[in-house]
Amino acid sequence: MSMPLRTPGLPPRHSAPSAVSVVLWCAAVAFVVWSFAGAGLSLERLQRGIPALGNMLSRMFPPDVERLPQILWSLLVTFQMAVAGCVLGLILAFPVAVLAADNLSPHPAVKAAARGLIALFRTVPDLVWALLFVIAVGLGPPAGILAIMVDKIGFAGRFFAEAMEEADKGPREALEALGATRTGVIFSAIVPECLPSFVATSLFALEKAVRGSVILGLVGAGGIGVELKVAFDLFDYDTAATIIIAVFLLVLLVEQISDRIRRALI
């Protein structure tokens, strides 16, 4: 049997990792192990937790529908809060996105400021905004609406800006070449092209707002979250179950509808 021919110049299958990457990998693994230890998650704790969870679940069923009218009313308020906050946020996100987009911002300083604002609104969780607005405007849905609005300026502002940056530069250049103003270029060339992306982002924002608005009630920013908190505080688990199911159905419904719209658009 003859030996297979050796091909000169064939590159090796693997190249040896550098010392730096070996050290970095070891550090990453050590960090993950350390994180588990730090969080105090242990098998023994899980074993104790499971019966407690089972006990709570058994007390949740069957769900208590006695307060259903009140729950549905709160759910409606929650949804309204999400819609109002979301719409306000989306409207304000557009100009912020224009100022933050690479190809549209009038000045680098303005761009940096707009991007900073978007980053701030995105990185601070909506629950924290809700806490701030509860202090500013008092308990109730208005605080929730403002918190959702700020969160959505951050969320949609970033995606709107990215969509506008990715827009084909041909139509834009053609309009600039015929002497159109910046506003003309934005609304005639860029917005029509980005519209499907804008709508998709807006629908995601609405889904996110509906899910988020449930939590906001926990800190007093209105909606069904308050009901949920009270039910848990009073160990009224069967009412809590009804609330959770109602929220689940609402979120599912909103997601289904927005998914349909998105599909129709693409």
């Binding site: 041909g170 053609a174 309009l175 015929l178 002497g179 159109a180 029509p192 092209e193």
Partner: peptide
Amino acid sequence: IVFQKHNLVPRLSALTNVVHGIQS
């Protein structure tokens, strides 16, 4: 100016794209 690529907005109607010329 007419470019190699037409540089129109594909999602808009022909008439709207022509109307854009008035922006001069």
